[in-house]
Simulated scan of single mutants.
Amino acid sequence: MTSIDEVQSRAVGASRNRRAISTGRRGDKVFRGAALGSGIFVLVIMGAIAAFLIWKAIPALQANEGNFLTDTEWRANGDPPRFGIAQLAFGTIMSAFLALLMATPVAIGIALFISFYAPRKLADGLGFIVDLLAAVPSIIYGLWGLHFLVMNADPVIEFLNTYLGWFPLFAGENVGGQSIFIGSVVLAIMILPIVSSISREVFLQVPTPHIEAAQALGATRWETIRLSVLPYGRSGVISAMMLGLGRALGETVAIALVLSTVAGINWHILEPGGNTFAANIVRTFGESGDIGRSALIASGLVLFIITMIVNMAARAVVSRRKEFTE
């Protein structure tokens, strides 16, 4: 028979278990509420930013004598004001995507080399150097691009123009100087550590059984990477690319230093000229009046929308590739 002491001890133990479960459930509720509140708070901040930009942009949009979406000239301080974002949108998107095209293959190659090919000591050193590039201020990249890259890139530009001039982007008669191509190279170097670092971390998270299974079947190192590593890390690499693209879209000082402002849209990226939203804002904000500043805020609103669309598209792509991470 069970003694009274044993019954009491069991009752005390059961009471403690109920209190622990109850406390755990309260903790779960608190955590769920905190997470939900944080998510709502982020949405509120984004909505507040959008509302502020719209509110400040309305005066300039009402006073504008041109077409805000299609005009290529920017005379927001004129009388009457006339401005449009066509050239700014073209320069921003073109330079950012060219930078992404140049940086992504190099960044993925660096990440794969550090993760699977380089000796451990060498890999640690290379990883540190690549990560260190992200800490360099953007104005340093801009000054380097202006005083070194612009002065020494003519042989490469002439080569592209001579042998690839049949393609519209590399065509042109007066090539060289502060062009969208130079700006794209600077942006590519700036986003390289972001894409490389995130891709490297994603590749290192590939489950070891996946790699060992491929090697057990006789796959070479490259076949193992192609069959096991890249499919698993595809969504992470896409996320890294989108973070790099977001950095390139919003870059200000570096791109403002290496681009020369020439009115109009020019598809020949090797010729001088080009402008972006961020570069136009930093160049003209100080000398702008009320309408001019309102116009710049309106252009910032468009950049905000473009960035949101890019991130939403990236999220959709990552969601479709979710099965590779499971």
Rank of each mutant, 00 (worst) to 15 (best):
Ile85His: 01
Ala76Asp: 01
Arg75Gly: 12
Ala60Tyr: 09
Ala111Cys: 01
Phe277Cys: 03
Ala86Gln: 05
Lys56Ser: 06
Arg226Ser: 11
Ile194Leu: 13
Thr284Gln: 07
Ile265Cys: 11
Leu303Cys: 11
Pro231Cys: 04
Phe116Pro: 00
Val106Leu: 09
Gly27Tyr: 14
Gly183Ser: 02
Arg320Leu: 10
Phe83Lys: 02
Ala254Gln: 12
Val12Arg: 12
Ile110Asn: 12
Ala107Ser: 15
Gly233Arg: 12
Glu251Asp: 08
Phe170His: 14
Asn161Cys: 11
Met1Val: 15
Leu217Arg: 15
Tyr163Glu: 04
Gly273Pro: 02
Met312Gln: 12
Leu296Cys: 04
Ser184Glu: 04
Ala295Phe: 08
Val175Tyr: 04
Arg16Asn: 10
Ala60Cys: 01
Ile54Met: 14
Pro59Gln: 03
Ile58Asp: 00
Val150Trp: 13
Gly250Met: 02
Thr252Met: 13
Glu323Met: 14
Ile110Phe: 15
Glu271Gly: 03
Met308Asp: 05
Pro272Ser: 02
Leu227Val: 03
Ile255Ala: 02
Ala111Met: 00
Phe203Pro: 01
Ile255Arg: 04
Leu187Tyr: 11
Ala279Arg: 01
Ala96Ser: 15
Leu217Phe: 15
Thr307Gln: 08
Val310Cys: 04
Ser138Gly: 07
Arg16Gln: 12
Leu249Gln: 07
Gly289His: 06
Glu201Met: 03
Leu303Ile: 12
Gly250Ser: 12
Ala63Ser: 13
Val136His: 10
Ala60Gly: 06
Ala107Arg: 14
Thr224Met: 12
Phe285Ser: 05
Gly183Thr: 04
Ile108Ala: 02
Ala96Trp: 11
Gly236Leu: 03
Glu212Pro: 03
Leu36Phe: 14
Pro105Glu: 10
Ala278Val: 05
Ile182Asp: 00
Pro81Gly: 08
Thr220Lys: 06
Val253Asn: 00
Leu61Lys: 09
Phe68Ser: 11
Val202Asn: 05
Gly286Tyr: 13
Ala263Phe: 09
Pro119Gln: 05
Gly273Arg: 00
Ile238Asn: 07
Trp55Arg: 07
Phe285Thr: 08
Ile269Ser: 00
Met312Asn: 13
Ser299Gln: 08
Phe277Leu: 10
Thr224Phe: 04
Gly145Pro: 07
Arg19Ile: 15
Ala103Cys: 01
Ser9Met: 13
Arg32Cys: 08
Val302Glu: 01
Arg226Thr: 06
Ala89Pro: 04
Asp5Asn: 08
Trp222Leu: 12
Ile265Asn: 07
Gly91Met: 06
Gly78Ala: 14
Ala60His: 04
Gln178Arg: 14
Asn275Tyr: 08
Val42Ser: 14
Leu88Asn: 13
Arg26Gly: 15
Gly300Met: 10
Val317Glu: 13
